[in-house]
Nucleic acid binder design. Structure first.
Lengths: 145, 145
DNA sequence: CCATTTTCTTGAATCAGTCAAGATAAAGAG
DNA sequence: CTCTTTATCTTGACTGATTCAAGAAAATGG
């Protein structure tokens, strides 16, 4: 738990929030920071990370912050089948995920076909599609031995 | 509720079960039948459909049957983010799904690139990948107006 | 600094899904 | 067909992530 990688300064997080027209609150700054520091963390891990800095934050504040941040596009929510919700800070870059069937670990994978061509379905069934989400399932290096 | 499409006979469902080395029980036949008749149905809908034929079936029997059928490959479990588990009978044909962000309806989409090339990640991160799952997000014809 | 509006705290509630123990039914052997 | 074994089903309690609701606290704009 002492491996908090600081990828941006608190000041930068505050500016991200302002840039998204969101009020700057301590819980939100801490949640945004925690998601940056712990990619693919689930809500409970984020709650614990946030409480490392703000011990009195309620779980509800973290849930609310994550919903607001995701709606604003500052974080992305992912939820592979059978998993609880997880969050990451890489947004808008059309990347996908590999999930280990055994241990559940998640890794990022850039889109196989480049920019955003995953968006092309063979037949869109009349839907107006705005996102293509790809999840690769398999075994991670550690579990495949 | 009266639109139970009969896509196969009870006898055929029994043979599917035997072919998968599974015991043939009435709950399993009814569950398999319900999944065939109601593609993309959630567990609760399946329970209700099954009880149309077997009123005394427990929810647990349905959960157990679905798990066993999915493990045997007779049905496929899908679970788009934010949705409960859903089941379908099209298996092993590498098809994907379009999900409506508004009403949650799901439609099938054949793999854009043909056979099973979705399996090719740009960089597998050392994972041994066995499946690529694609979910297209957007608005269905009804909700996009 | 004040007023307004949003956000946070607290604590209860929901709901899909799971667990566990005993009753029942399917399959294979005789 | 009956018996035995083993898997499956029933019943009912329980878990755990997430949400709801009401009042307290804090952020923003003036």
């Amino acid at each position: 738990m002492g491996d908090s990688v600081c990828v941006a300064t608190p000041m930068e997080f505050r500016e991200m929030l302002r840039g998204a027209a969101l009020r700057v609150t301590r819980p939100r700054v801490a949640v945004l920071s925690a998601v940056h520091a712990h990619p693919h963390a689930d809500t409970d891990s984020i709650i614990r990370a946030v409480r490392g800095h703000l011990p009195k934050v309620s779980h509800q504040a973290v849930y609310d912050s994550l919903r607001v941040l995701a709606a604003a596009g500052l974080v992305r929510r992912i939820q592979p089948s059978g998993s609880v919700a997880r969050y990451e800070s890489r947004t808008g870059d059309n990347h996908h995920h590999v999930v280990c069937r055994s241990c559940g670990v998640i890794a990022d994978v850039d889109c196989a076909t480049g920019e955003a061509p995953c968006l092309t379905a063979s037949d869109d069934r009349g839907f107006s599609i705005d996102e293509a989400e790809v999840v690769y399932w398999g075994l991670c290096p550690g579990c495949s031995t």
